[in-house]
Lab assay of single mutants.
Amino acid sequence: NKFNKEQQWATYEILNLPNLNEEQRKAFIDSLKDDPSQSANLLAEAKKLNDAQA
């Protein structure tokens, strides 16, 4: 299913963002699990935070 693929991709991407700390990473991944339909939005937020902390 589409959300499952998006969720897996977003999880992979978030795990590989270098500037997030473990707590932030875990929070994003927990949110992905809670609502896979928000995968794209959550990934965008994670990338923004990652860039802000660069």
Rank of each mutant, 00 (worst) to 15 (best):
P18D: 04
P18T: 05
I29N: 02
L15H: 06
S31V: 10
K33G: 14
E6I: 09
S39F: 15
N1W: 00
S39H: 14
Q24G: 01
S37N: 10
E22N: 12
L43F: 08
N19W: 12
I29R: 02
N4Y: 14
E13G: 05
Y12N: 14
Y12L: 07
E13F: 05
F28M: 05
A46E: 00
K47S: 05
F28K: 01
A44V: 11
W9D: 10
K5I: 03
S37Y: 08
Q7Y: 14
E23T: 11
D35F: 13
L32N: 01
L17N: 01
N50S: 10
A46W: 01
N16E: 08
F3Q: 15
L32E: 00
K5G: 13
D35M: 08
E23M: 12
L15I: 11
L43S: 03
I29M: 10
L43E: 01
Q24E: 03
Y12H: 13
E45L: 09
T11I: 11
K33H: 09
N16Y: 05
T11Y: 15
I29H: 03
N50I: 01
I29Q: 05
A27S: 11
E13R: 05
K5S: 14
A52I: 12
R25N: 01
E13Y: 05
L32G: 01
A46M: 01
L49V: 10
K33I: 14
F28Q: 00
K26S: 12
P18F: 06
L32R: 00
S37D: 05
L20T: 00
A52L: 11
L17S: 01
A54K: 12
K47F: 06
S31A: 12
Q8R: 07
D34Y: 11
L49D: 02
E6H: 04
A44R: 06
N21V: 05
S39E: 03
A27K: 06
K26V: 08
N21K: 08
K2F: 07
N41L: 07
F28A: 02
L43T: 04
Q38T: 07
S31F: 10
K33Q: 14
L42V: 14
D35I: 06
Q38M: 13
N41V: 09
F28H: 01
N19A: 09
Q8N: 03
P36E: 03
S37F: 06
T11D: 03
E13P: 01
N4Q: 15
L20G: 00
W9E: 15
L32D: 00
K48T: 10
Q8L: 09
E45F: 06
P18Y: 05
N4R: 02
N50E: 02
A54W: 07
N19P: 00
D30H: 07
E6R: 01
L17M: 13
L17T: 01
L43R: 04
K47P: 00
D51G: 08
N50P: 01
A40M: 14
A10N: 03
N19E: 04
S37V: 05
A46H: 00
S31E: 10
A44F: 08
K33W: 14
S39G: 03
A54L: 08
K33N: 12
L42T: 13
A40W: 10
S37M: 08
Q53V: 07
N21R: 12
Q24V: 05
L49I: 11
S39K: 02
P18H: 05
Q53E: 05
E45P: 00
A44D: 09
A46D: 00
F3K: 15
A44Q: 07
N16D: 04
D30W: 04
N16M: 10
K2M: 14
N16A: 07
E23Q: 09
Q7W: 14
A52Q: 12
E22G: 10
N1A: 02
N41K: 12
N21W: 11
N19F: 09
W9I: 14
E23S: 12
N16V: 06
E6W: 04
D35W: 10
E13H: 10
L20P: 00
F3V: 15
A54V: 07
L17Y: 05
N41W: 06
L42I: 13
L20D: 00
K5W: 04
K26Q: 12
T11N: 12
A54F: 08
N19T: 04
L49R: 04
P36S: 04
D34L: 14
F28W: 02
A27F: 06
A46P: 00
K47A: 07
A44H: 09
L20K: 00
K2N: 15
R25Q: 09
N4A: 12
Q7P: 03
Q24Y: 02
W9G: 04
Q7R: 02
Q38E: 08
A46F: 02
N4H: 14
D34H: 09
L15Y: 04
Q38I: 07
L20N: 00
S31M: 10
N21Y: 10
D30A: 11
I14A: 01
N21M: 11
E22V: 10
W9V: 14
E45K: 10
K33F: 15
D51Y: 08
K2P: 13
D51P: 01
A52T: 11
L20S: 00
L15W: 08
W9H: 14
R25L: 05
N21P: 03
N19K: 03
A46T: 00
S37P: 05
F3N: 15
N1E: 14
D34M: 13
Q7E: 15
L17W: 01
A52E: 12
N21T: 13
Q53K: 07
E13T: 08
Q24I: 05
S31K: 13
F3T: 15
A54M: 06
Q53M: 13
K48A: 10
K5E: 15
L32K: 00
P18A: 10
S39L: 09
A52W: 12
N16P: 00
E45D: 06
T11H: 15
T11G: 04
L49W: 06
K2A: 14
S39N: 05
K5M: 03
E23P: 08
K5T: 15
A44L: 12
L42H: 08
L20A: 00
S31N: 08
K47V: 13
D30Q: 07
Y12D: 14
K26H: 11
F3I: 15
A27I: 12
N41I: 08
P36Q: 02
I29P: 00
I29V: 07
E6K: 02
Q38W: 05
L20V: 02
L20Y: 00
L20E: 00
F28D: 00
Q24P: 00
L20M: 02
K2R: 12
N1R: 03
D51N: 10
L43P: 00
I29S: 03
K26Y: 05
N41S: 12
A52V: 12
F28T: 01
F3S: 15
N1F: 00
A54H: 12
F28I: 04
K48D: 07
N16H: 14
A46G: 02
K48Q: 12
N21D: 09
A52P: 03
R25H: 03
N50G: 03
Q8V: 07
Q38R: 10
K33D: 13
P18L: 04
L49M: 10
Q7K: 02
D51W: 11
I14F: 03
F28Y: 12
Q7A: 15
N16S: 07
N19R: 04
A27M: 10
N1Y: 00
L15P: 01
D51M: 10
K5R: 02
T11L: 15
P36Y: 03
K47R: 11
L49P: 00
N4D: 15
A52R: 13
P18V: 07
